[in-house]
Amino acid sequence: QEFQFGPCQVEGVVLQELWEAFQAMKDIAQAQDNITSVQLLRKEVLQNVSEAESCYLIHALLEFYLNTVFKNYHDKAVEFRILKSFSTLANNFIVIMSKLQPSQEKEMFSIRESARRRFLLFRRAFKQLDREAAVTKAFGEVDILLTWMENFYQL
């Protein structure tokens, strides 16, 4: 059981454990999101992502989640008493990040750019919202992210 994001292989993460951690937070996290007309991880970001693109895209998304979303959601995690599940998710995202080695070779430039455009769609939508609302929405959309990641998980 491992992730295979195109050329990037990630072992040592059990997807079921990530799902269990998010399920424990899902209701309370998504209940805080009042903006139902916007989806940050929308079709244009995640649909029809090629294998080759997937490593670049997951790397950019997880980096953003760790550096921006989780960091700014932490106080809410304490407030909602979901710190343990929050920690499980964050630490497993760190494991995945540490094992992703997206290639920087020149031939991959167009694929890298394609993945980058997808990520920028997500980040632009994030920035168009009020900061706290954006963090809350992005955290609530972790199930969308996990569902997409599941496509690259091999039992």
Partner: peptide, 17 residues
């Protein structure tokens, strides 16, 4: 404290279950 906490918010410690 997991690696996330020590990297991103080293002042945060989580009570054991």
């Amino acid at each position: 404290q997991g690696e996330y906490e020590s990297l991103y918010m080293s002042h945060i410690w989580i009570p054991s279950s």
